[in-house]
């Protein structure tokens, strides 16, 4: 077997058409997960009654099981549930009409929420309690102090961790090809098997992933410099 170098470029052009799907599968779960993460982190920090145990269980489960399993369970489980409910209440909903991408987005969002909540929680804890006390001493409420003083610093300090998660989820989105979602890896698989050029197709996909990661790292570097400028000391 020889390697067909020019075909890498042909494959590249074909595979990159799937880039929007990969970006959707990365960005949407992270945005939804960010909201879940903030809420879960606050619940766990304030030990809010009734929901505290649920939040602990959620984080423990989703961080303790592989993401591929979340996708599979939701992909096979939700349709079953939907059909059961629909037949029971005579609703005119068919699970087969639900686009597959919704299952994948749900699974990835729940996983992202669990991972992000831990990042946000550690960010919140890292802000000195002294600042919280001084916020209270000027008469701020708990919510004002959290959202105006603590969270902005917690999130700024977490940028490197967010980047890690972003890159992780960019690559994790490739699992979606198992449920025949045509993102980068899925597209590479199709190109590979129709042309019987597996090595070339996956090299092309790898180049795309690597390029994306380099871009993300660059953006993160600039963002980090900007949002943590306050802590750098020295005279500006």
């Amino acid at each position: 077997m020889t390697i067909d170098l020019p075909f890498i470029w042909i494959a590249f052009k074909e595979i990159i058409k799937a880039l929007p799907i990969t970006l959707i599968l990365t960005i949407v779960p992270l945005l939804v997960g960010f909201l879940i993460g903030i809420i879960v982190a606050l619940v766990r920090i304030y030990k809010t009654r009734f929901v505290y145990q649920a939040a602990n269980g959620y984080v423990s489960f989703f961080r303790g099981t592989p993401i591929i399993m979340h996708i599979m369970v939701i992909y096979y489980g939700i349709p079953l549930l939907v059909d059961q409910v629909a037949s029971k209440f005579n609703l005119n909903i068919q699970s087969s009409k639900i686009p597959i991408i919704l299952f994948v987005l749900t699974a990835l969002s729940l996983a992202a929420g669990a991972y992000l909540s831990e990042i946000i929680r550690s960010g919140i804890i890292s802000v000195s309690t002294g600042q919280l006390e001084s916020a209270y001493s000027v008469g701020m409420t708990k919510i004002q102090a959290m959202f105006r003083i603590v969270l902005p610093q917690a999130l700024a300090q977490s940028v490197p961790n967010f980047t890690n998660i972003f890159i992780g989820f960019l690559h994790t989105s490739s699992i979606a090809f198992l449920v025949s979602e045509k993102e980068l890896t899925g597209a590479a698989n199709i190109v590979a098997s129709t042309n019987l050029k597996f090595l070339e197709a996956f090299i092309a996909a790898g180049i795309i992933y690597w390029g994306l990661t380099i871009i993300v790292e660059g953006i993160s570097f600039l963002l980090e410099k900007r949002v943590t400028s306050y802590s750098r000391g020295g005279v500006s």
Binding site: S128, G130, Q131, E133, S134, A135, S137, V138, G139, M140, Q144, R148, I149, P152, Q153, A156, Y230, S231
Partner: peptide, 25 residues
């Protein structure tokens, strides 16, 4: 209150630190 370790809001400038209580509270 004035604290032993100052406890200024690290992400806010000097004037923002002073304004914060006035504006928010």
């Amino acid at each position: 209150m004035v604290f032993q370790h100052y406890n200024l809001f690290a992400h806010k400038t000097v004037i923002e630190n002073v304004m914060e209580g006035l504006v928010v509270v």
